[in-house]
Amino acid sequence: MLLNELKVGEQANILCISDDVFRTKLLEMGIMPGTRVTLLLKAPFRGPIAFSYQNTLLSIRNEDAQQIAVDKLSIQA
């Protein structure tokens, strides 16, 4: 499933990021396949989403979140 499809509070591991430039940018920020993320906020009207990883709350746009494939974990945060 894609990152933007997670519900608020759901955890997932990142599987892959399709866009080259975006993948490199995220890699430089320490986000890569295997990184555990928790979706924490969703802006109204399919606006940006915010997820936490390590100790950061990072927001990205909905369509950019669609570039990120994740593997949802069954346990909830």
């Binding site: 430039v21 940018k25 915010a50 950061t56 709350l57 990072l58 927001s59 990205i60 746009r61 950019d64």
Partner: peptide, 12 residues
């Protein structure tokens, strides 16, 4: 010239 990404940290 290049696609831009919106990457914003939400600080505490």
């Amino acid at each position: 010239e290049k696609r831009s990404y919106y990457l914003m940290e939400i600080p505490e």
